[in-house]
Design a protein around this nucleic acid. Sequence first.
RNA 1: GCCCGGGUGGUGGAACAGGUAGACACGCAGGACUUAAAAUCCUGUGACCCUAAAGGUCGUACGGGUUCGAUUCCCGUCUCGGGUACCA
Length: 895
Amino acid sequence: LDMFPYPSGAGLHVGHPLGYIASDIVARYKRLKGFEVLHPMGYDSFGLPAEQYAIQTGQHPAITTEQNIARYRQQLDRLGFSFDWEREVRTSDPAYYRWTQWIFLQLYGSWYNVATQKAEDIQTLLHHLQAQGTQNLQAVQSEALTISSSEWNAMSEAEQHKTLLNYRLAYLSEAVVNWCPALGTVLANEEVKDGVSERGGHPVERKKMLQWSMRINAYADRLLEGLDRIEWSESIKEAQRNWIGRSRGSTLRFALLHSSGEPDGRFIEVFTTRPDTVFGVSFITLAPEHEWALELATPDRRQEVEQYVQYATNRSERERQADVKKVTGVFTGAFVRHPFSGEPIPIWLGEYVLAGYGTGAVMGVPGHDGRDHAFARTFGLPIVEVISGGNVEEEAWEAKTGTLVNSDFLDGLSVEEAIAAAIEAIEGEGMGKGTTQYRLRDATFSRQRYWGEPIPVYFKEGVPMPMPTEHLPLQLPSVDKYLPTESGEPPLARAEGWAYRPANDHQAFPIEFSTMPGWAGSSWYFLRYMDPHNTNAFASSESLAYWNQVDLYIGGNEHATGHLLYSRFWTKFLFDRGWLSFDEPFKKLINQGMIQGTSAFVYRVQGSHTFVSKGHKEKFMTTALHVDVNLVSNNVLDIERFKAWREEFRNAEFLLEEDKYICGSEVEKMSKSKWNVVNPDDVVAQYGADCLRLYEMFLGPLELSKPWNTNGITGVSGFIRKVWRLFHHQGSWAVNDEAPVRAELKVLHKTIKKIEEDMERFSFNTSVSTFMICVNELTDLGCRKRSILEPLALILAPYAPHLAEELWERLGHAGGIASASFPAWSEEHLTEDSFAYPVSVNGKTRFKAELSLSLSAAEVEAAVLAHPDMPRFLEGKQVKKVVVVPGKIANVVAV
RNA sequence: GCCCGGGUGGUGGAACAGGUAGACACGCAGGACUUAAAAUCCUGUGACCCUAAAGGUCGUACGGGUUCGAUUCCCGUCUCGGGUACCA
């Protein structure tokens, strides 16, 4: 399986097919090995660019998308992929998104039972609430509610529905979201980078809005645990682990003190991973957004606190991130009581505390936390050492090594012991309990966009209600414009009659205006390939059981914490609810590296029309300009074409070196704006599709990022010619039926074995070398025998299908290569005649021992010692021992 | 800062289980064929020393260690790339 592409208007560049080529090779190889292979392709066809184009031109996104898909298909076909196009899926196809909507409704209709550790039908929750209220209820929820069964049963239907949103896996809530005014939509955390939108780089603000969300947090532990069961690269697994960010610690309540110095009955709760440092607490810091931030302020501090809260909330996320080093804060004037020492502790507000994590409050331990240390230093708060090992006046001692000091009952313990002892004491006093916190946030699911799946929910008395599944697909309505309405509603608010009318009801209920995010359709598309035309289910249980998990998934690592996390989440959910028999979607994942572009530069002398060759550029004040790489070959600029390239260069003058204009070059991301895009169509036109396939594999390991250059393509092209010449002589077919000799069989079988080994390790680049060696050796042997060349054509077929197919047909086989099977190698043809001979003397004697595998180590040792050259190498010394590695080297150690 | 992954000739990269480092390809140099070009083929190509032929020394970022033997394993350092961050 390849990660399906978003069909952008720019078409494919040479980087896109890299992964497709690799997966196509595996698919063709496995088919030849007799496996039934599902190798599909489709399009992630909802998305922003088509919509933005629609906004500019009024063209319906479906039309642009259709055109782009046609272009993609043409380009893909040119490369000779063996995709099963019968199974193509498009996320924007109503027949497809009908099931995206259906899965959404299942999520809406489910809750997460902590007791059974799985998602269950909302009905089981209803029964629980009716019978016992929230008593004994262990559910993943937005907030802890306490409702008795009688209270529940007395609620109106609308109230019950509202309450259930607290538990549903797809739920509507008032949430602080990443709002991007320029794009007019909410973005997921994954879609925001450095405070700006990933797409377009527009500023993003924090804003409270009524939003649909997915309770992915319910699956945090299982998403972590599942990583141990799948073959993914360590870096992606780490990225997901960090993203989920599980940290174990404890909550701790600090009694709030009344101005009189007595407890006022309220508590400030903090979360800490270091309860062992509790005696080092010298202040408490709340996030400026903390609900008590203002009311805690004592009258004399009030004005200052208000100013600070004002300042902090007005700062955008971006500004905050830009200067995280800057320490800001304000004292509220209020105090809490230390839970063990009883000392009063001042309460501060500080920007470094995030409202959205933990409880939005931290205990300040400046001796052992860097951020607390910086805060204490800035505001002159006391720094207490409670773990020996460092100089806490200078720097916080954050290491988890050392002995507890100044800590009452914890004194003398190690950090590890102290953490356990502190949690025990905290829980014993009822002041908190051991807890696990996650960095992972529930995923926002609403997008204020047009070109996405409509959310199949209507509103009855302001309460969201699921549409009956018979009404799916809920099709995208047509709108006059693809922009938000004047009142700021999403584009769907423009659709006329956007309402749900139940069959035996005269009422019309408004339908949700927002659409689903891009990751909705891509979270389950791999399942649809298994049964793409099913109209009764997203896929039949038979086909799901037959194909099972994706064995091999190839795609870029940019989806590490987006698509790859969400698909795992949805798969686990569908597994819980019994629609799937597996709970991890992708057994093995390979991340192909990016193919970068090699940009070319010309150097213009500032304020002139003169361009100086690279060797002269230091002598002038120059500006480097990107120049289209197609105007440059071997760093030499085609001056005439350059002048014709753009009007502004028509009268350009040049300062050359050795009569040539040499361009500078730099490796950058391949992109239109950098003029370094290489179109695969051009490469195919010049060298053929097989050559492009082989060359992309030959460039280096699949996982590696590497710049595109065609320096080595002549080697691959020459290889293909050589294959051709093995089968042809002076233009005519030259394969004969002579019996093969030993040397020829050895070349063939060695090659088959090596190709199989490479394939098992997905080492495509070394395979190409293996083919080259094989063809060189057969050429040297002058071998044109059918018995050797026919298997050669077969093993070459996954890599160079066009060439192989043509040769196969010429060899007289009807029905195509697909019906053939991969040849097997045999040990018999690989054994050596000689088995041991000396290689060099270097204090020790080394023997090359290319041995038959049937010989035992003892037999080898005896043979090595009996070797006629042995006395010469020993030079009178005594043999101490013989180290034998079968198939490798025999070392004779002599003294 | 933290996490992950790298560092091998002029270049891309091989070396799969600790066993001849540099496969294969590009580039470069020389040569063959050709009126010429293209194409094709042959030879050489890690550095250094030394040869008539041979032969030798060093060499996988750097410094140590384990081992008969280390590109590979361990410890430390440097460095490049990617991810991520006031997550308490």
